[in-house]
């Protein structure tokens, strides 16, 4: 077999969508094996010595961010559907979200800081909504 025939490949258009993903998957697999082979022991040792729940996580802030963000994402299109194509879903949901996040991240929850957080939560979405949705006519949720 000549080199040329060894290198020749034909790709059928109808199945061409699988060619590159297959190649990539194989390379990925080889690399994974290589990593495990060269550093598997170190990785295992590290994993083994880890506590099952990492310490020192600020649970409230971390999970608060996640839960808040998920709620925000769910609420936006839902609210937006009541006022179609106005961007109000974004506007109405961003205010409480911003306020909640600002307060969540705050360490000294005194009156002054809460005021600033509240003002910011109202002003920032207003400006963004006005500029993008009203002035530039960009679609928001």
């Amino acid at each position: 077999m000549s080199l040329e025939s060894l290198l020749s490949v034909s790709i059928d258009f109808d199945t061409s969508h699988t060619v590159f993903p297959t190649i990539t998957a194989v390379v990925l697999g080889i690399l994974l094996v290589a990593i495990l082979a060269t550093r598997g022991r170190t990785i295992l040792a590290t994993v083994g010595s880890l506590p099952w729940w990492p310490a020192k996580i600020d649970h409230m802030r971390f999970f608060g961010t996640l839960v808040g963000t998920v709620l925000y994402f769910i609420a936006m299109p839902w609210v937006g559907d009541f006022y179609p194509n106005t961007g109000l879903g974004f506007y109405i949901c961003s205010i409480p979200y911003l306020f909640a996040m600002s307060v969540l991240y705050l360490h000294q929850r005194d009156k002054r800081h809460l005021m600033i957080a509240g003002l910011n939560a109202v002003i920032a979405p207003s400006v963004v909504w006005y500029l993008l949705s009203e002035l530039f006519n960009i679609s928001l949720p």
Binding site: T86, Y91, S126, V127, Y130
Partner: peptide, 18 residues
């Protein structure tokens, strides 16, 4: 001021969504 004006218009919009 434009933002203020929009806010007023916004209140009106919320009132009659459908």
């Amino acid at each position: 001021f434009k933002t203020l004006a929009t806010a007023a218009g916004f209140a009106a919009m919320v009132a009659s969504p459908i």
